[in-house]
Design a protein around this nucleic acid. Structure first.
Lengths: 338, 338
DNA sequence: TTGAAAGCGCTAACAT
DNA sequence: ATGTTAGCGCTTTCAA
């Protein structure tokens, strides 16, 4: 692999001149420029990013950290990030922490070694909740790097973030359920160690209170954002026959778990029980399940996160910014047919 | 950010010694080692990857290139790659080419700048098929880098690769369909510009020939691996009422398109028409669709790709290796109920 | 408009 | 067991 030095020699100029045409900075005559670019072409010269980084003392890559890239939620976010990063000419270093806070710690270390310009981070947990988490929190704060958090929003979080309107959308879900003629409702909650899950629960409860929808305690089902868990708790509920009129599921995965339980117990959504799900259920119209859902655009979340990070990298000290992505509603089965 | 030089000064030793403890190479007395590690801790010393790369003349990151990370197929592959990379202490630079061969070219350029140790590449197309593709092919060959191709296997491909047993599994699909009592069958093909799609078609046809399953030309549906396309062609077929006894769908996305069409036309799978799908249909048991499918493990594909790359990075000149991931069969609806 | 030279943070060969 | 030194490939200041 040819270096700048050799290009310079071949072109009969100094490294400085070659560097100038590389970055087109400073003055270079048209002649020498041509001579140099010709040589570069001919010998397939490709500058070393490491050398540039070292010399400039800053890189043009940013770090992405997600709990599980195999989860379509994060895959979509990364997709959005990737697209925006491409427009900004930034490279992405990707790490999957496998939902382990230990890995999260290691990974942040690696990111510092890379001297990334900034980080987009999907924490595996709210840092308040555990000892390890609090430790990580401090480690993170001392990195003095632009950081954007996605889909987490815990108390006293000092970083920029992009989150959904969790409270508002869940509030709305309750209202819609009532409006559709339901008197009682249950909720499949997310992991309540996460503020985003608590927000959805509270939003739903407040909405229910507001409009007179009844939510019995035993219909508040403890979930953790996984299919399997939602399946279990839903099944148990559906088998009791002490059903609420309606169910609100806090995310996509859990909706799937609920659907499975519903099918197995032969309870029909939109007939025996009204339903509102969350996130996008891509397959709803394919399989013909009459679903209502609150739509959240993960791709957009990724794009916005990248744009927010870019902004922060340009203006480091401008106050925290928390971006809330609006939700959309698709109503189709929030009322029971008699 | 503190540097090795400063660590050395603070510890009262030379940079070389610090470097030794960093890489624990050579001899360092327990005392000085302790002194140095203490300083490192105290001042949060973190070595610069760029400097190491430059000095060692080799990096410890590898490049991942996929056509669309938002597609769960690739997300799962990247997940597998990520896990294996983690075990091998390699970092990942990720690029999404958005199915554009132009971007693919640019991205490979960037990867060269990064001086990555190797590349795992999911090409957006078979390079034989277009002018741009052939150009890229040559560009790629001149990179003289360990490269592993995933899920592509075009003629005269010189690189290591990991692919599914496309021909064999499709052959088997035909046999099973016949065995289940079907006389005629159709096939939703993938994009026939891709050899993997042609392999599936040929495997299916050969299998059909072998066992006496009839495949009429008009039941060979031109697909392109997308939901929408499969939906269109399936719908057209299902509306003619000149149905084959069975359908074989070449991949996950297309199965979904077919299911949508089947639902809309009220044609029941496993009753009006037998069916075998491909890849994993995660939601089959959730939605209760009686699906048979050929199971392919994308996560494993990713893992294997990473391991293969690692091997090639250690033994650069050992002859090409093409790894074939075996398939599994889940039979459940390959026969029509009368 | 161009060149010389120092420096970015590290490694590694060679001395001691 | 430790230090000296010469790079690695680039950028950037200063001088010409």
């Amino acid at each position: 692999m040819i270096t700048i030095k050799e290009v310079a020699e071949l072109a009969g100029v100094s490294k400085a001149t070659v560097s100038r045409v590389l970055n087109n900075s400073g003055y270079v005559s048209a002649d020498t420029r041509k001579k140099i670019t010709d040589i570069m072409e001919m010998y397939h010269y490709i500058p070393s990013a490491a050398a540039v980084t070292l010399s400039r003392q800053e890189s043009s890559t940013i770090g992405i950290v997600v709990p599980e890239i195999g989860n379509s939620f994060y895959a979509d976010i990364v997709h959005g990030i990737s697209q925006s990063a491409d427009e900004l000419n930034l490279s992405l270093v990707l790490f999957d922490t496998q939902n382990s806070i230990k890995k999260e710690e290691r990974v942040l270390q690696l990111l510092q070694q890379q001297r990334v310009k900034g980080i987009i981070l999907g924490p595996s947990t709210d840092y308040q909740e555990t000892q390890e988490g609090r430790q990580l929190f401090h480690q993170l704060k001392e990195m003095h790097l632009p950081i954007v958090i996605v889909d987490r929003d815990f108390p006293h979080m000092p970083w920029d973030a992009v989150v959904y309107e969790n409270y508002e959308s869940s509030f709305r879900a309750a209202i819609e359920l009532k409006k559709a003629g339901n008197e009682t409702a249950g909720i499949l909650t997310g992991n309540l160690h996460l503020k985003i899950a608590r927000d959805r629960l509270e939003g739903f409860q407040d909405g229910a209170r507001e409009c007179g929808l009844t939510v019995y305690k035993e219909h508040i089902l403890p979930g953790n954002f996984t299919i399997e868990n939602a399946y279990q708790v839903s099944k148990r509920l559906l088998e009791t026959k002490e059903l609420p009129d309606a169910i609100y599921s806090c995310n996509n995965q859990m909706t799937l778990g609920f659907l499975k339980a519903a099918r197995e117990t032969e309870i029909k959504i939109g007939k025996d029980i009204a339903f509102i799900g969350n996130d996008r259920i891509e397959y709803a119209d394919i399989f013909g399940v009459p679903l209502s859902y609150i739509y959240r655009d993960n791709f957009e979340m990724g794009q916005k996160a990248m744009q927010l990070l870019e902004k922060r990298m340009c203006f480091p000290h401008n106050g925290q910014e928390i971006l809330r992505i609006p939700y959309a509603l698709s109503l189709n089965g929030s009322e029971r047919k008699q």
